[in-house]
Design a protein around this nucleic acid. Structure first.
Length: 573
RNA sequence: GACUCAGUAGCUCAGCUGGUAGAGCACAUCCCUUUUAAGGAUGGGGUCCAGGGUUCGAACCCCUGCUGAGUCACCA
């Protein structure tokens, strides 16, 4: 890489790396570095009375430095957090040679470098538990400057906030913004908590195909890919429901999967093209049982993560203590709009939508119309966890008909903070009914509903062998993680949210410039001057090019022999 | 996809009605043996997102594009 492409600070760090090498120090050593303690443990365990922790070693990233002549303070960040370390020249370098302190530590190390230290723990006059360093080892040199974030009394200064940079360079975000790490740790705890809950019940964690010939189990636009050997399209799964139910047919009584699903739809702060859903299916249960099971699971998650059930989300306090409120979707609509839509036909529903000023288009069937009304007028009002139950059969092609009303299904969704996070039913196990419902979806598809489900005949075949009565539930892990970590955006609970690729400026290579007669060593300088392509250079004013090049040569002390203005003119000719 | 806002030093941000770019932190040089977003002095660092236009003159005004954010649409 040509130094012209680097910032001043990057050049300095590369120079420091060379200096280290010259001193015989490998800035990227191969050996294991023995770590005996971590920052937080030290702070908790140190007892000045006992004079414990008198020979410890620790490794991490250098986060700040305060150099005062022959003594210095620095902060090291390891997996547990930050701890202050104290360097004194004559303790680090007891002999005549003070290079390690004067040169290596003070001049050649930078914020961001990864080092290992050995020494004893003590308390400073200011009362901060610190490590007095006797041995210093360079473990990895950092060649790029880190954003410097400072904090005092909980107030953060110069925070690294640009969302684009934070998401594109999550590693930097994680290094400098401490709370970011916590959210991701909580996310993993959340999944562990659920897993523990399911395993205790004896349910089996399984894996099912991500590449599916028929994208079933949900209504959504899939990603399509192609398998070369089979020479057929394959879809990235939008749900794993149909596969898990096949396993119930096969005789497993309880199966669950934490699944990455993919939907080729819009992106915003609660949608990412790939996201994580947990789906669980339990034989011989119904949706009423599943509601209780879900409550218990979510309450447990809240307790495991926060030690309490009341959790702050934005400016709302949400109480996850059981039991949650329950209301049927039709009652909810009646409550919020005054309209009793039960038993209405499509036309009547359209009229209601019109009166409520809800925009609907021709392709919508009965189920979708009801869903529109609910989504528009009711959904956002459910801040505290609420089960919405008994959805119309048209919008639930995989759910069993309600035991009391064949127009409805035994289904519930859990609403929290105005959003759906969970969806469950008594699973439809009547193969003939299932086939008919799929066929109804096909009619919707033909009508223009591009989200209606595909027909999966193998799934119907499985049902024909007989599936026990089963209840299934799916929960959006990202959405739940957002709630549990008080994150406003899904991007805050995904390490690497989907982004547009970074654009690299195209530039012509050296050979194209050399063809004009430009000496090779001048090509990077021309690039630096802003002429990335031969055509751009040719259109430029030769005098300006000449002056720019000489200027850059001087400014960056490149030590090149300046071309004559005639030579420059000849390049552009 | 529509609308709104934003893009200036490594980071956070100023920059008035258009007049050759500023601060804090970071960085460099020097001084300083328990400091606390710790110091003091001095200094270096910029394609003001890109491209066009208006103008004697554009970081600033206009147009187009790129990227991101927000609102909406879409998303059972």
């Amino acid at each position: 890489m040509n130094t012209l492409e680097l910032s001043e600070q990057e050049i300095l760090r590369r120079n420091s790396l060379e200096e280290l090498t010259k001193l015989g120090i490998n800035a990227y050593p191969a050996e294991e570095y023995k770590v005996t303690h971590y920052s937080q443990d030290i702070k908790e365990q140190f007892d000045p009375e006992n004079e414990n922790l008198q020979d410890i070693s620790l490794a991490g990233r250098l986060m700040s430095r305060r150099i005062m002549g022959s003594a210095s303070f620095a902060e090291i960040k390891d997996k547990q957090g930050r701890i202050q370390v104290y360097f004194r020249r004559d303790d680090l370098c007891p002999g005549e040679d003070k290079t390690l302190y004067n040169t290596v530590f003070k001049k050649l190390l930078d914020i961001g470098d990864i080092i290992g230290i050995r020494g004893h723990v003590f308390k400073t006059q200011m009362g901060e538990i610190s490590i007095h360093v006797k041995e210093l080892t360079v473990l990895a040199k950092s060649l790029r400057p880190l954003p410097i974030v400072k904090e005092k009394d909980g107030k953060v200064y110069d925070a690294f906030t640009d969302p684009e940079q934070r998401y594109r360079m999550r590693y930097v975000d994680l290094i400098v913004n401490d709370p970011v790490k916590d959210a991701f740790i909580k996310r993993t705890q959340l999944m562990n908590s659920m897993r523990e809950f399911f395993n205790k019940c004896g349910y089996l964690e399984v894996e099912t195909p991500i590449l599916q010939p028929i994208p079933g189990g949900a209504a959504a636009r899939p990603f399509i890919t192609h398998h070369n050997t089979l020479n057929m399209p394959l879809y990235l799964r939008i749900a794993n429901e149909l596969y898990l139910k096949r396993l119930i047919v096969g005789g497993f009584d309880g199966v669950y999967e934490f699944a990455k699903d993919f939907r080729n739809e819009g992106m915003d702060r609660s949608h990412n093209p790939e996201f994580t859903v947990m789906e669980i299916y339990v034989a011989y249960k119904d949706y009423k049982w599943m509601m209780e099971f879900t409550e218990e699971m979510i309450e447990k998650v809240a307790l495991d993560l926060h030690g309490k059930t009341k959790i702050q989300v934005g400016d709302q306090e949400i109480e996850f203590k059981r039991p949650f409120k329950r209301i049927s979707i039709l009652d909810s609509i009646k409550e919020h709009t005054g309209y009793d839509v039960s038993g209405m036909n499509e036309e009547q529903l359209r009229e209601v939508c019109e009166k409520l000023e809800i925009e609907v288009d021709e392709s919508l069937g009965k189920g979708k119309l009801i869903d529109e009304i609910f989504g528009e007028k009711c959904e956002h009002t459910y801040i505290q966890p609420t089960f919405i139950t008994d959805y119309p059969v048209e919008m639930s092609p995989l759910a069993k008909r309600h035991r009391d009303n064949p127009e409805l299904t035994e289904r519930f969704e859990l609403m929290v903070n105005g959003k759906e996070i969970c969806n469950a039913y008594s699973e439809l196990n009547h193969p003939i009914d299932q086939r008919e419902r799929f066929e109804e979806q096909l009619r919707l598809l033909e009508k223009g509903d591009d989200e209606a489900m595909f027909i999966d005949y193998d799934f119907v075949r499985a049902l024909e062998f007989g599936m026990p009565p089963t209840s299934g539930m799916g929960i959006g892990i990202d959405r739940l993680a957002m709630l549990m970590t008080n994150s406003a955006s899904i991007q805050d609970v995904l390490f690497f949210p989907q982004m547009r690729p970074e654009k690299k400026k195209e530039k012509d290579g050296a050979e194209k410039f050399e063809a004009l007669g430009v000496p090779q060593e001048w090509v990077p300088v021309i690039h630096k001057a802003g002429f990335l392509k031969v055509d751009e250079l040719k259109q430029a004013n030769p005098n300006k090019v000449f002056q720019d090049l000489c200027g850059l040569n001087k400014k960056h002390k490149l030590g090149l022999k300046n071309p004559s203005s005639e030579q420059v003119k000849s390049w552009l000719a």
